[in-house]
């Protein structure tokens, strides 16, 4: 009797262990699906685009024929756009973070700002486009210009920069506050000379990651009127402009297959820029991580 019972338990045990093994395999398989598609995506983009990626492509702008089209005007447009975005979003974002972490007292208003920022991060980017269209394009009357696009994108990534900067500031040990205040330094001296420099790597990393998100954003730029057929580089903040993702979208949307190769080449450049930015962010993080 007892022996049989033990036999039964053993058998059931084997079944349970087997089930565990099967499911473990399934879990791994599910994880690899994401990875496989990542590889497929890279492979597809590379094989489609590499043929069109040459010196001519890097140095020319939009053109009516696939063989003559290039990414140059879009790339410079994106870089100028990012410069505007960086200036506005970093100043406003870091200042907001300093206010929230160092100055704000714990009251309803501060809590309101915090909740507001986290909700803003969840607003679809295209809605920011509508905001920019109303305010920057029409009310401020900038029209479909570089500055309108830049300001729209700056607001879009502002929440990301605020949150990253807050985390960086929070990770500065309280010891350093005490040391500086204990020397008779004022609050602002403490922040400017000790806290900010110590938080800088974290802030930089967060900013670069936020910018790398912005540089690939397409939808809000379409709404605030980044043009597709711009043949010269923008020469002022109030100039019309185009950007890399806009060019890529435009080429992708064309029916002839050659244009998809042109788009693929553009994607290779875009992904390379992203890779570069993220590597810099990781480098900064690794270099300064051991310090604090």
């Amino acid at each position: 009797m007892l022996g049989q019972n033990e036999e039964g338990i053993k058998k059931r045990m084997e079944g349970r262990v087997l089930k565990n093994k099967i499911m473990a395999g399934l879990f791994f398989l599910a994880t690899s699906v994401g990875l496989i598609f990542l590889v497929l995506l890279f492979y597809r983009v590379l094989t489609q685009g590499i043929g069109y990626l040459n010196w001519n492509y890097l140095t020319s702008g939009p053109a009516p024929y696939p063989e003559e089209a290039g990414i140059w005007v879009g790339m410079i447009g994106s870089i100028m756009l990012m410069a505007i975005v960086a200036i506005f979003s970093v100043i406003i974002g870091v200042a907001s973070a300093i206010y929230l972490e160092e100055y704000a007292s714990q009251n309803k208003f501060t809590e309101f700002i915090r909740v507001n920022i986290s909700n803003l991060a969840g607003v679809p980017s295209i809605v920011f486009g509508l905001l920019g269209l109303t305010f920057f394009v029409y009310i401020f009357n900038f029209g479909y210009t570089l500055i309108a696009g830049g300001l729209t994108m700056a607001l879009l990534i502002l929440p990301v920069i605020v949150v990253a900067s807050q985390e960086a500031l929070r990770s500065v040990p309280i010891d350093l506050h005490q040391a500086s205040l204990g020397m008779g330094a004022t609050k602002w001296q403490t922040i400017a000379r000790v806290i900010l420099p110590a938080a800088l790597p974290g802030i930089l990393t967060g900013t670069i990651i936020a910018l790398s998100r912005a540089i690939g954003e397409t939808a809000p730029l379409i709404i605030v009127g980044a043009a597709t057929a711009i043949y010269t580089l923008p020469d002022s903040l109030l100039a019309k402009y185009t950007a890399m993702p806009i060019q890529i979208y435009n080429w992708t949307a064309r029916p002839q297959e050659e244009w998809q190769f042109v788009a693929g080449a553009g994607i290779i450049i875009l992904l390379a820029v992203l890779l570069l930015m993220n590597s810099i962010a990781v480098l900064i993080r690794n270099k300064f991580q051991q310090r604090l």
Binding site: D175, A179, M183, A198
Partner: peptide, 27 residues
């Protein structure tokens, strides 16, 4: 500045020795 303080665990700034010591006067 009249009543200075040394803390429980060493808390130098992540700066050079010189900048650490010069911090108070500079401030």
């Amino acid at each position: 500045t009249k009543v200075g303080m040394v803390f429980q665990s060493p808390n130098p700034f992540p700066k050079s020795v010189y900048d650490n010591v010069a911090y108070g006067p500079r401030v």
